[in-house]
Design a protein around this nucleic acid. Structure first.
Length: 747
DNA sequence: TACTGGATTATTTTT
DNA sequence: TAATCCAGTA
């Protein structure tokens, strides 16, 4: 029997031992959240609950895997039938059973980011929409948000019926869904939305899963969107044994649809909920936590919580403001080098957290020059790699060829003389006559206006696919892959595609990995099937574990703050702590105050990654988007009490010209100012701290915004250092913006 | 059909 | 700055 009281602290034990009814665990950073969940699951099983009836939902496959392994380690043999899985793979499995009742075939596929993009391009072309007027990303986001809110294309159309500016959005959404349907595909958002639809429309299906999952746990609950919330609500609707775990202060994915009110209002939905706060932190020193607490206290929309620790105070948080991004990077690299040389740390103990990916360049240079091993944790994942996309598209085309998106991707890769215009003719012909692109390729001469050269090339392509397909019987999947590579001369093509030897070697490595993944899948699966394989990996696939590799190799890690969530490091560097970068000027410019609060939560996440040492750096001057920008120290850093900081500034700061109020503390004012140093000749050109003294437009004037188009100025408020201009754009949107940023032109 | 150069544009991204 | 996209050309 597991002794919860002995293994856990009183709050954790209470959380783990409460079996029935709704439970909200507010788990602060580093408070032993995973431990608590794992013990709770083990406890459920020990209490006699059938593991088969227990479900835990996570967001990442990594988290799911970790949780499962740990429970299994505690109760060997008993825990194997618990369902621990991500939202998306859970929905995928449910959809696999019920896809037909929703009008898909059971061999439906997953449209990933690149598929979505190509569908969007196609839709824009068909509807003759100008991407300049309607940036693709914006409509894509709108569609995704709509799905996150459980609005299908008709709900969306109805809701925006009177909104003239949304007409195009409605059309694109409709056409986008139509294309997905035509390709028998769901995007990630569809997986969730369709599951909810299934639960709502099909009583039997819902009841089946309600009976199956009598005990439900949800990890990272603050990141759930409305669709996921509803899915959980329906599933838990019968037994109400729902335990959600999360931290409202770590909600940083609003831009992806996460709805922080799911966690903030949990007790409204579940009035009898038991709420438990885990506030003891086992990760960081006292000062680091004090800083984190001080920063996050500036947010209004949050649960009252305060991290504390039994750990010692630790060293002061160090802050340095450097003249440029380059000297900032050098400073960090030097500091790490000294730390490793003298302080008993390894390179692998150090992580640099950045707000945006572009910040990595200077850091990489600095490390390379010094010969320090580093690893950039990048967003690009295995299944998004070009090589893997190409080859998996080939595999699917060979497997069934029903998905035009896949065929489209490979029909001219490597180049075989089939041009874009010929492909387009074929696709249009296919759409009209309801034939797949692959089938057309077999006899392209029937397409009106098809040049015979292209038709011949298509025929060659078709014959090749067909011969591989005919040859499939009795072959291993990886052998089919090899045949594709051979028949397409893909390796030769790769040589031309990759600029460097290293890039080529990397691509080869990826292909080997794909081969290996295919073999593993084939071994573990009763009825191996390529469509099933691709679908699984579309949702679960993240085969290249970059972080795992670098752990062994003792490398400094560079990553975005978002990527750092859930991780911890002895030494953390927060780089680029500047207003306009962090918080981003997007959020500063936003008409929604919640935007800056979200960035502040990101700051809280970043700070709480640190165990022992925290260094924060800022640059006075930085190249952003090809232009030099001058910035003040981030407001978030100014929210950290001076007493916690060591601000032994390297460059002697001049007196600030217009003093921002840093709580009247002189040292702070000096350390934080961003004096226009002598090395900034272009200072007058464009600045954050030198906005236009007066505007050449006034209230009622017509103005042009580089992004939003033309509009009418509603009001101008002088906000001290800049003017806050409210403009009603012709699209119907009203935006508040700072004149210094918006660069409005009078028309 | 394939390539090149000029214009354009710009957070964060567990699935 | 750097990546991406399209138009015009070979």
């Amino acid at each position: 029997m597991i002794d919860l009281q002995k293994e856990l602290n009183p709050m954790q034990a209470k959380a783990a031992s409460t079996i029935d009814g709704p439970v909200l665990i507010l788990a602060g950073a580093g408070s032993g959240k995973t431990r608590t969940i794992v013990y709770r699951m083990a406890h459920l099983i020990e209490s006699g609950i059938n593991p088969w009836n227990i479900m835990a939902l996570t967001f990442t496959n990594k988290a799911a895997k970790e949780m499962k392994t740990r429970v299994e380690a505690m109760l060997p043999g008993e825990a194997s039938s618990i369902w621990v899985s991500t939202f998306h793979s859970t929905c995928l499995r449910i959809m696999f059973r019920f896809a037909e009742s929703l009008g898909y075939t059971s061999s439906f596929e997953i449209a990933d980011a690149s598929d979505q993009k190509s569908i969007m391009k196609d839709v824009y072309k068909r509807l003759e929409i100008d991407p300049k007027m309607y940036p693709m990303k914006r409509i894509q986001n709108a569609i995704s948000s709509a799905k996150d809110e459980l609005k299908d294309e008709e709900d969306y159309a109805a809701e925006n019926r009177d909104d003239f500016g949304k007409e195009v959005y409605i059309e694109v959404y409709r056409e986008y869904q139509k294309t997905l349907r035509k390709n028998n595909s769901m995007d990630f958002d569809d997986l969730i939305m369709n599951t909810v639809r299934l639960f709502r429309e099909n009583k039997e299906a819902l009841e089946y899963y309600q009976e199956r999952f009598k005990y439900i746990m949800v990890d990272e609950y603050q990141d759930t969107n409305t669709a996921q919330f509803e899915m959980i609500r329906l599933l838990a609707g019968k037994y109400r044994n729902l335990c959600v775990v999360g931290d409202d202060d770590q909600s940083i994915y609003r831009f992806r649809g996460a709805n922080i009110y799911n966690i903030l209002d949990f007790e409204k939905e579940y009035k009898d909920a038991l709420v438990i706060k885990l506030e003891e932190n086992y990760r960081s020193t006292g000062r680091i936590l004090d800083a984190a607490n001080a920063v996050i206290a500036h947010n209004t929309e949050r649960k009252n919580k305060k991290l504390w620790t039994a750990h010692p105070e630790g060293s002061l948080i160090k802050f340095r403001q450097l003249d440029s991004a380059i000297s900032e990077a050098s400073f960090i690299a030097d500091d790490i080098k000294t730390k490793v040389g003298t302080g008993g740390y390894n390179y692998g103990d150090c992580a640099i957290l950045i707000r945006t990916n572009v910040q990595s360049k200077e850091l990489e240079d600095a490390f390379r020059v010094r010969g320090i091993d580093y690893d950039l944790v990048k967003g690009l994942r295995f299944w998004d790699t070009k090589v893997i996309k190409d080859l998996s598209s080939y595999l699917l085309t060979v497997a069934d060829g029903l998905n035009d998106m896949r065929t489209l991707r490979v029909i001219n890769v490597p180049k075989r003389g089939i041009g874009a215009s010929s492909v387009e003719k074929a696709v249009v012909f296919g759409a009209v006559n309801d034939i797949s692109l692959l089938e057309i390729a077999g006899d392209a001469m029937r397409v009106p206006g098809m040049p015979s050269k292209a038709a011949n090339a298509m025929k060659t392509f078709y014959d090749m696919i067909m011969s591989i397909r005919a040859d499939m019987k009795g072959k291993k999947l990886s052998e089919i892959l090899d045949e594709i590579i051979e028949k397409t001369a893909y390796m030769d093509y790769l040589v031309g595609e990759t600029e460097t030897k290293e890039k080529y070697a990397e691509a080869v490595e990826y292909i080997d990995k794909l081969r290996e993944t295919l073999d593993i899948y084939e071994e573990d699966t009763d009825e191996p099937d390529l469509v099933d394989f691709m679908r699984q990996n579309g949702v679960e696939g993240n085969a290249l574990d970059k972080t795992g590799e670098s752990d062994e190799k003792d490398k400094v890690l560079i990553m975005t703050m978002h990527n750092a969530k859930g991780l911890e490091f002895p030494c953390v560097y927060i780089s680029g702590a500047e207003d306009g970068l962090f918080p981003s000027y997007m959020s500063l410019n936003s008409d929604d105050e919640m935007a800056v609060e979200e960035e502040r939560r990101l700051c809280y996440v970043a700070i709480t990654r640190a165990e022992k040492e925290l260094m924060i750096t800022a640059a006075r001057q930085r190249m952003i988007n090809g232009e030099t920008r001058y910035s003040n120290v981030s407001r978030f850093i100014r929210e950290i009490p001076i007493g916690l900081m060591d601000m032994n500034v390297t460059a002697a700061p001049a007196a600030p010209k217009d003093k921002p109020d840093y709580n009247n503390r002189e040292i702070a004012a000096r350390a934080f100012s961003a004096p226009p140093s002598a090395l900034s000749p272009g200072f007058k050109k464009r600045t954050l701290q030198e906005p236009p003294k007066e505007l050449n437009y006034g209230e009622g004037d017509r103005v042009l915004h580089f992004k939003f188009g033309t509009g009418t100025v509603k009001s101008i408020v002088s906000g001290g250092r800049d003017f806050e201009v409210t403009v009603e754009f012709d699209s119907g949107e009203t935006k508040k913006m700072f004149a210094g940023f918006a660069k409005l032109k009078k028309v």
